[in-house]
């Protein structure tokens, strides 16, 4: 027991010389990045202005339904409600265009009475319109992304005909495509 006390005293004195407390406010390097935080640390969201096409995959996969999409006349808005988010990073993982990332920024506290006062991260993408009925359809970026993806993956034998079909398809909304598929000559049975 006596030996234990001596050992503990030694440890206390060693502790007194080397406190492990980190600085507050946290240390930053010359560029303003936090030095004591891992790069993989998941914090506030950031949408990439160019890469994000507004497909909405993140809204489907979000486990606490923190990411929501809302369409207005001309654009689609993706908004992340930070007060609801659990920072699991599934939205980042699922994003097909790698247009969403979680920055290491973590200081998101705010004064406020209700959840509406919490920080929101928002991103808007322009929507295309249907040539026939004039309704808004899909984000323009998403249409382009699908076209690119199809061209990469398709069997080269069908490349020409599918591209011809897509030229027509992409201009209309889903309802118009269905109702006018014979007129557009894009019905699947046309190739029989």
């Amino acid at each position: 027991m006596k030996y234990g006390v001596v050992k503990l005293t030694k440890e206390l004195l060693r502790n007194a010389i080397h406190p492990v407390t980190v600085n507050y406010p946290a240390k930053k390097d010359l560029l303003g990045a936090l030095t004591e935080i891992a790069d993989e640390s998941r914090g506030k969201h950031r949408f990439d202005e160019i890469k994000c096409v507004g497909c909405g995959a993140c809204t489907i996969v979000c486990s606490s339904s923190a990411i929501t999409e809302s369409d207005s006349d001309l654009e689609r808005t993706l908004s992340v409600e930070i007060g609801r988010c659990i920072f699991c990073g599934r939205c980042r993982d699922i994003c097909p265009e790698k247009g969403l990332e979680l920055t290491p920024e973590f200081e998101m506290s705010k004064k406020g009475q209700s959840a509406n006062d919490c920080i929101k991260v928002e991103h808007s993408v322009p929507l295309g319109t249907c040539d026939k009925c004039g309704r808004t359809t899909f984000p323009i970026g998403q249409i382009e992304a699908v076209r690119k993806r199809v061209n990469e993956k398709i069997d080269p034998a069908n490349l020409v005909i599918v591209n011809k079909d897509m030229e027509i398809f992409m201009r209309y909304c889903p309802d118009c495509r269905r109702s006018g598929s014979y007129a557009f000559k894009t019905h699947p049975r046309k190739s029989y």
Binding site: A26, C85, F106, M108, K110, G112, Q113, S114, D117, I119
Partner: peptide, 16 residues
């Protein structure tokens, strides 16, 4: 009545 909101799941200690 709430005065300050600290988001995060869990919030980092610095955030608190």
């Amino acid at each position: 009545p709430i005065d300050v909101l600290v988001p995060g799941c869990p919030p980092r200690p610095e955030s608190i």
